[in-house]
Design a protein around this nucleic acid. Structure first.
Length: 530
RNA sequence: GCCGCGUUCGUCUAGGGGUCCAGGACGCCGCCCUUUCACGGCGGUAGCACGGGUUCAAAUCCCGUACGCGGUACCA
């Protein structure tokens, strides 16, 4: 209606203008309508083959953000159909990782909803039933070929010049399956329990076209597709079958997954069609790339110093908010110049049409920048909670919370990760055992003399006046009496008391350490340093 | 090989025919602040892969090429 108005008002002047308006309005209108009509259900469907890696976490995140943006449901489904690659404990790791990151799973193996069970190994019968249904409807068939026979077929074809031999609409005609074998033989083979698989009967020449929510319309020719195995000989479904059956059974409305699945999507579309089901909307996310190129793999990440598993970020004391913020922006942006958003804001802002199409290189330095940012935003009291744990873990017996708070205050805007409060501030917890090599370069022949001079001054002031301002004044005195630069005295004092050549405000640090401790440390140090 | 998908500063991105001799962020460099190292503030460096079209006008639309990535399993 708005469009009509626009037309009558502007068509005399400029007809292209109207067309532009019309297109934009129409696009937005249909998109909003689509999503409002159905209640959004998305799933994160990892295989329990190891720890949840960072790419998986991001896929989960985008699913989560999308679900929350539309007030939908976030489902966790465990795709454990590959018994050989199953890893004990992986499921637990996935769940705890998602929770650590701040994502709430609405339905999952640990939190059953109406469409369970949520482990594919527990849904076997369902797949078998549907696979059989496909055979009966003529969309799939039994195949009895051994792996060896298939290999031989491939080699034979390769030898005769076929560069990519496959089990497809042509080659299946010369293989041992229910399409070529007489029906009674098929039946007897099945009755005898002979090993077999069920394959999808991929149509010979068809174009599979669908709209990907991040890429637009994509299309594939079925000629390039194998007759996919649907049921393996061990009675388990393949990913393709299980995935389609479950997404349908679990009423998933939007499939949001990594780009590595894009090539498989036409197989899935064919399956939906064969079942006569409406396919969910598809969105294939750009991959996270390694700085050296290629998909960020475990091996690459390790050699490039990037933690690959979510667990590594947990044990590495990263801020979950920082990781989430960073990951959200790796392949997506809200379209303005903002960089910082918490989970709630991300949920509000996230839309699939703002996901970028190209792969995104993981930039660890930017992650650290986010981490730093979130630490600075965290209050001293909240940091104290984390520091308490870390101090204990490091084996220090420091329980005075007021003391710890002061340590945190002094280091708050110098650390980029919480564990640096412990490493950078180690001298607050114990006297230095060794003196930093680089710092010692600044230790000159006259350093010990200056330190002694300063020591004798501060030894005279009462404990109650052992405060930063006084300590600074006395150091200034030492400086002027010796007619040297400030650093000539300050740095040696810093080295003997902290073991480091850098760090927080020296006088505030000395005040916090206390008179006895400072004097002791100086004595101790001067035994080693001359 | 074949199929598919991509390509804006080193990296993440904004931009989707004129408002862009391309904006922001990380990094890097410089300056300021400063007792060190940081933080912070200010400034700088650097990019539309290439070639053809279409158009009065192209980073933006079309076609090629190159390059990258993914897939091509009884793995997901």
């Amino acid at each position: 209606m708005n469009v009509e108005l626009a037309k009558t008002q502007f068509n005399i002047q400029n007809s292209t203008f109207i067309i532009v308006i019309f297109r934009i309005r129409k696009k937005q209108a249909t998109k909003k309508l689509d999503i409002k009509l159905m209640s959004v259900r998305v799933r994160f469907a990892p295989s329990p083959t190891g720890f949840l890696h960072i790419g998986g976490l991001r896929t989960a995140l985008y699913n989560y953000l999308f679900s929350r943006h539309h007030g939908g449901t976030f489902v966790l489904r465990i795709e454990d159909t590959d018994q050989a690659r199953y890893v004990e404990g992986a499921e637990h790791d996935i769940i705890t990782s998602l929770e650590w990151a701040g994502m709430t799973i609405d339905e999952g193996p640990h939190k059953p909803g109406k469409v369970g069970p949520y482990r594919q190994s527990e849904r076997k019968e369902l797949y078998a039933k549907y696979a059989k249904q496909l055979v009966e409807s003529g969309n799939a068939y039994y195949a009895f070929d051994t792996t060896q026979e298939i290999e031989e077929m491939r080699e034979r074809l390769k030898a005769s010049g076929n560069p990519s031999p496959s089990y497809d609409s042509i080659t299946r005609q010369s293989m041992k399956n229910s399409l070529t074998l007489p029906q009674d033989e098929v039946e007897s083979r099945l009755k005898n329990g002979e090993e077999h698989v069920i394959r999808l009967k991929v149509p010979r020449r068809e174009t599979v076209k669908f709209e990907d929510l991040v890429r637009g319309v994509v299309s594939f020719e079925t000629a390039g597709l194998d007759d996919q195995v649907l049921m393996k000989s061990d009675g388990m479904p393949t990913y393709h079958l299980a995935n389609v059956v479950d997404d349908h059974a679990m009423e998933i409305t939007h499939v949001i997954r990594g780009e590595e699945w894009l090539s498989s999507a036409p197989k899935h579309m064919l399956l939906y069609k064969a079942f006569g089901w409406e396919a969910p909307k598809m969105a294939h996310l750009p991959l996270i790339m390694s700085p050296s190129g290629g998909k960020l793999s475990k091996r690459k990440a390790e050699t490039e110093g990037i933690p690959i598993n979510t667990k590594d970020y947990i044990t590495g004391n990263y801020e979950p908010e920082a990781l989430i913020n960073f990951l959200a922006y790796l392949g997506w942006s809200p379209g303005d110049d903002s960089e910082i958003h918490n989970m709630n804001e991300l949920c509000e802002l996230f839309t699939l049409d703002r996901v970028s199409k190209g792969g995104a290189v993981f930039n660890h330095k930017k992650l650290m920048w986010y981490n730093e940012h979130y630490i600075r935003q965290t209050s001293i009291d909240d940091l104290l909670l984390k520091i308490n744990v870390l101090v204990k873990a490091a084996g220090y017996d420091v329980t005075d919370e007021e003391y710890l708070k002061k340590v945190i205050e002094l280091l708050h805007d110098r650390v980029s990760k919480v564990d640096e409060f412990i490493s950078m501030g180690a001298f607050f917890f114990e006297a230095p055992k060794e003196y930093d090599e680089n710092a010692l370069k600044k230790w000159k022949d006259d350093s010990a003399g200056f330190v002694k001079a300063y020591q004798s001054k501060i030894a005279l002031i009462p404990e109650s006046e052992f405060v930063a301002t006084n300590l600074k004044t006395l150091l200034e005195e030492t400086v002027s009496e010796n007619e040297v630069g400030f650093g000539k005295v300050m740095m040696p004092v810093r080295i003997v008391t902290t073991g480091q050549g850098f760090g927080p405000d020296l006088f505030a640090s000395l005040e916090l350490l206390g008179k006895d401790e400072v004097l002791n440390r100086i004595d101790q140090a001067l035994q080693h340093l001359n």
